[in-house]
Simulated assay, not measured.
Amino acid sequence: MSGGGIARGRLAEERKSWRKNHPHGFVAKPDNAQDGSLDLMVWKCIIPGKPGTDWEGGFFPLTLHFSEDYPSKPPKCKFPQVSSILMSTHLELCAYLILNEDYGWRPAITVKQILVGIQDLLDQPNPADPAQN
């Protein structure tokens, strides 16, 4: 199986697993390709704000872009323009910490773990990390 076949196979399994069991309020699904078919390499996601935090009641969209090298290499995470530049910058830094192949990425990390990890970092940033102020 080629590298792309491995990536697509893994993503198909992750989609199946997500559909059976995912955290309440979260959305993660492959985008539609131009021909209307599912594009397993691009996922549209929504992370809900965690109850009891400043983010409660918010919904934070993002897109995960997977390469043919997935799961050996992490997906790229893109946040569309959100209400404030600070928020967008904070989310980009959080995602960088989870999805940096030189920092802490492991091929066993799932889409569910990525999204829950970003939700956790929204309210519990790691001030000891030099990437966060």
Rank of each mutant, 00 (worst) to 15 (best):
Ser2Ala: 15
Ser2Met: 14
Gly3Thr: 15
Gly5Trp: 11
Arg8Gly: 05
Gly9Asn: 14
Arg10Val: 13
Lys16Ile: 11
Ser17Cys: 04
Arg19Glu: 00
Asn21Ser: 09
Asn21Gln: 10
Asn21Glu: 11
Gly25Asp: 00
Asn32Met: 09
Ala33Phe: 05
Ala33Trp: 04
Ala33Arg: 07
Ala33Leu: 07
Gln34Arg: 12
Asp35Leu: 09
Gly36Leu: 07
Ser37Met: 08
Leu38Pro: 04
Leu38Gly: 07
Leu38Tyr: 01
Leu38Asp: 05
Leu38Lys: 04
Asp39Arg: 02
Val42Cys: 10
Lys44Phe: 08
Pro48Arg: 07
Pro48Val: 08
Gly49Lys: 01
Gly52Gln: 07
Trp55Phe: 12
Trp55Thr: 02
Gly58Asp: 07
Ser67Tyr: 11
Tyr70His: 12
Ser72Leu: 15
Pro74Gln: 09
Pro80Asn: 14
Val82Lys: 11
Ser83Ile: 02
Ser84Trp: 05
Leu86Phe: 13
Thr89Lys: 12
His90Pro: 05
Cys94Leu: 02
Tyr96Asp: 10
Ile98Thr: 06
Ile98Phe: 08
Asn100Pro: 04
Asp102Asn: 15
Lys112Cys: 09
Gln113Gly: 02
Gln113His: 06
Gln113Asn: 01
Ile114Phe: 03
Leu115Val: 07
Leu115Phe: 08
Val116Pro: 11
Leu121Ala: 13
Leu122Met: 15
Asp123Asn: 13
Pro125Ala: 00
Asn126Ile: 03
Gln132Val: 14
Asn133Gln: 08
